[in-house]
Design a protein around this nucleic acid. Structure first.
Lengths: 142, 142
DNA sequence: TAATATTACATAGTTTGCTATGCAATGCTA
DNA sequence: TAGCATTGCATAGCAAACTATGTAATATTA
């Protein structure tokens, strides 16, 4: 069990669970993180606009938004110009956890990479970007 | 969106989807892969014995085994000595796809790592192992 | 402008991960 | 050996990913 695929999968699961534990006190879960990051940058986006930022499928985002609304993190308002679309807005609660969430994410990042030097960390990230690029290339042409 | 966590997650999802497409013709899905690998090595294990090999939670394995039974990959027989336990056995179908599955996995591994040199691949794997080790350490002591 | 295509979002259904908990069988110990 | 603890597995319920498909609303085109 030492293939790249196995290790990546294992690592991803571990990281998600670490994040889950750290952000649980804030009332959010890992799947909401990318959406929150985008909305903290710019509020009032449509689902379509969010979608290009978060890199998940549209249906996944729609479900995540529904859970976020349920959890009191966002509200959805009708779009002023397009009745099909809705704009997505952070609630006070959603806004208020921003700094704590950033801090948690940065701390985890630092902790889990603590055994790698700066150069090694850079190499690690670059390998991942290259493999991701490679997969997207292969998938696009097949 | 360039943090280690984001990249690892992204990469893991991409790899799972590649694997899903490649093994679909064999009638299996990615979550069944670790279990199949273990059973191809040694048939007739109990769930408990499988568990130490696959590195997922017991409940996840139990559900995966149920789906594998449904899909005709395994059967479960009563344990000769312990009525709580059951031994898990590959069906002919489960056994027959072994070589194709190994080939698919090896091919994906080779393809997605094609842009990395042997040394880079080694470094990449070693970084992942170190980070995994680090997380397990941190989690154990917290 | 009426018909058609496209777009924005939602919903249904599956997989695969998790935690929490239940239940029966087995093991231990007072 | 009776009672309690532990073990092996199953189940329930949730999250988050996917594909496929449905439904309006909007845009395009014949």
């Amino acid at each position: 069990m030492n293939s790249a695929g196995y290790l990546v999968n294992n690592l991803a699961r571990l990281l998600v669970e670490v994040l889950r534990k750290r952000i649980a006190p804030l009332g959010i879960v890992p799947g909401q993180f990318p959406t929150l990051l985008a909305l903290w940058e710019k509020d009032g986006l449509t689902q379509k606009e969010l979608l290009v930022l978060v890199d998940i499928e549209q249906a996944t985002l729609a479900n995540t938004l529904t859970r976020m609304e349920r959890d009191g993190l966002i509200t959805r308002k009708e779009h002023p110009a397009d009745a099909r679309a809705r704009t997505i807005h952070l609630t006070n609660q959603g806004r208020s956890i921003r700094d704590e969430a950033y801090k948690a994410a940065a701390q985890i990042n630092e902790e889990v990479l603590a055994d790698l030097s700066d150069a090694e960390t850079e190499a690690f990230l670059s390998y991942m970007r290259r493999v991701i690029g490679r997969i997207k290339e292969v998938e696009a042409t097949s």
